[in-house]
Design a binder for these strands. Sequence first.
DNA 1: GTCTATAGCATGATAGAC
DNA 2: GTCTATCATGCTATAGAC
Lengths: 185, 185
Amino acid sequence: MPAPQRVSAETLVTAVRSIAEKDGVDAVTMSAVAAAVGVRAPSLYKRASNRHELLRLAADDVARELGEEIAELSRRVDDPRELLVGTARALRGISSRSPKVTTLLFCAPAPLAGPSPELVAPLMATLLAAVTRLSPEDPLSAARTLTAWAYGFSTMEQNGGFRQGGDVDAAFERGLDIVLAGIGA
Amino acid sequence: MPAPQRVSAETLVTAVRSIAEKDGVDAVTMSAVAAAVGVRAPSLYKRASNRHELLRLAADDVARELGEEIAELSRRVDDPRELLVGTARALRGISSRSPKVTTLLFCAPAPLAGPSPELVAPLMATLLAAVTRLSPEDPLSAARTLTAWAYGFSTMEQNGGFRQGGDVDAAFERGLDIVLAGIGA
DNA sequence: GTCTATAGCATGATAGAC
DNA sequence: GTCTATCATGCTATAGAC
């Protein structure tokens, strides 16, 4: 039986995420994270072999969150359109609560700092399955249209991309309608 | 008459952009840039008062490039749909040639490292004007749908967002059709 | 698994001469 | 505007004891 870790995986990832949101992704350093979890920097190397792996913990955690919301939706609803609506809104919600870490999904400083492909693939597969039911010909392109829009919107919203005022919630719902109509929903 | 600068603004911004593309945004440091332009680090502080201002030079340069392509399009074509198609393709092209710096547009490590709002505003205004001719009611939402999709697609394409293979060019054109149809083009 | 200690290096930034 | 010199700090990462 291995010795218990003094710092749980959950504590660690929570610290990484909170530092990233508070002071930016660049502020996630081995020593800052170590200090946050009450440990010395060298000890962290038993958990993540470098700074980028620390960031991946956070990125994976956000991917996991999104995956759970999608799974929960899948259980509750059968209508594919409803599933896609829920997924887009879930992404926007997560991005609003964790803007910095959410950008890591497709805007990481290095590939190793982004989410694990094995973790993202099943999410994409679920979306693709739902899209396929709506748009049997070239569902991959249709799914990419939806994800690109949802990610772009969420990122821009959180990074000052929408400075002209107006009703941003309305813009989101309008965009959702446009994209879903276009993919046959 | 002020003494001529030994390092032209163009040389400087070119160096920043090439370092960012080659080794990532994190590699843009005062000393790395100084070395690239053949100057000592302290001299750079006369040109940019910190690292983020260096990044802004690059972000603004990409915004300028995009602005020039849009202006050129505006001169050549009158059809608003064609202008929007050209703009989306221009953004994708720039993102493909300068992926790292293009992400700075809406995914900068700090607001000061992103493009100057005064530089981005006129671009958005041009787009909004074109969209207004196609979609008079709530053109702002329509314009946001287009920009969010185009930015999201370009970012994901350059950051491993599309790992399932398939025809990415086709996905882009399909997305463009979907969004333009939705905003009334 | 965690610690102390430290190597080794890069960093941003400033002062003052030319 | 650029230089030399330097400060003070921060960082990643490793070695070896407990």
